[in-house]
Simulated assay, not measured.
Amino acid sequence: MAHPEPPKDARAMRRAVLGDAYVDAAVRDQRPAVAEFQDYITETAWGVWARAGALSPRDRSLLVLAMTAALGRMEEFRTHATAAPRAGVTQREIDELPFQIAAYCGVPAGNAARRCLTEVANRSADEV
């Protein structure tokens, strides 16, 4: 079933997963090219998250984590690792990720993911 307002649904999904503070910071710069790029990211990447389909937000979160780790995009991995619990990913699933990443993407990618997950966990513990 198609969503009646895909851009609106994509914006809502982005905020639900990444949080208002992250999205507000990302869209703060209102220069036309930057604003247009943020709209593009929201409508394409988050439009996929918001569409109907067999994958849940949890599934999509795990896939994004695996793909960003495989590509070595650790800044994006960190963003999604921080947001993963809001998408329904459990701590046990997050702890298991580096094993899968190391097995299929190589030990350096698994090590980088583990370091990043540790940083995210430590930062979260400091905020409590």
Rank of each mutant, 00 (worst) to 15 (best):
residue 4 P to G: 15
residue 4 P to T: 14
residue 8 K to L: 15
residue 10 A to I: 09
residue 11 R to A: 14
residue 14 R to Y: 01
residue 14 R to K: 00
residue 19 G to R: 02
residue 23 V to K: 05
residue 23 V to F: 05
residue 23 V to N: 09
residue 23 V to D: 03
residue 25 A to S: 14
residue 29 D to S: 10
residue 30 Q to E: 12
residue 30 Q to W: 04
residue 30 Q to L: 10
residue 32 P to F: 07
residue 33 A to H: 15
residue 34 V to K: 08
residue 35 A to F: 10
residue 35 A to S: 13
residue 36 E to D: 12
residue 37 F to C: 01
residue 38 Q to H: 06
residue 38 Q to C: 05
residue 38 Q to G: 04
residue 41 I to Q: 06
residue 41 I to Y: 02
residue 44 T to H: 11
residue 44 T to L: 11
residue 44 T to G: 05
residue 46 W to H: 03
residue 47 G to V: 00
residue 48 V to D: 13
residue 48 V to T: 13
residue 50 A to C: 10
residue 53 G to A: 04
residue 55 L to Y: 10
residue 55 L to T: 03
residue 56 S to N: 11
residue 56 S to F: 09
residue 56 S to G: 07
residue 57 P to V: 03
residue 58 R to F: 05
residue 58 R to P: 07
residue 59 D to F: 00
residue 61 S to L: 01
residue 61 S to Q: 02
residue 66 A to G: 14
residue 69 A to D: 01
residue 75 E to K: 12
residue 76 E to D: 10
residue 77 F to E: 00
residue 77 F to S: 00
residue 78 R to M: 05
residue 79 T to I: 11
residue 82 T to P: 04
residue 83 A to R: 00
residue 84 A to R: 07
residue 84 A to T: 09
residue 84 A to G: 07
residue 84 A to Y: 07
residue 85 P to S: 14
residue 89 V to H: 09
residue 89 V to G: 05
residue 92 R to S: 15
residue 93 E to K: 06
residue 94 I to M: 14
residue 95 D to E: 14
residue 97 L to D: 02
residue 99 F to K: 11
residue 99 F to H: 15
residue 102 A to G: 11
residue 103 A to H: 12
residue 104 Y to E: 03
residue 104 Y to A: 08
residue 107 V to G: 06
residue 109 A to H: 09
residue 110 G to N: 06
residue 110 G to M: 04
residue 111 N to S: 07
residue 112 A to R: 02
residue 115 R to V: 10
residue 117 L to N: 01
residue 119 E to I: 03
residue 120 V to P: 05
residue 124 S to F: 12
residue 125 A to Q: 13
residue 127 E to W: 13
residue 127 E to G: 13
residue 128 V to P: 13
residue 128 V to M: 15
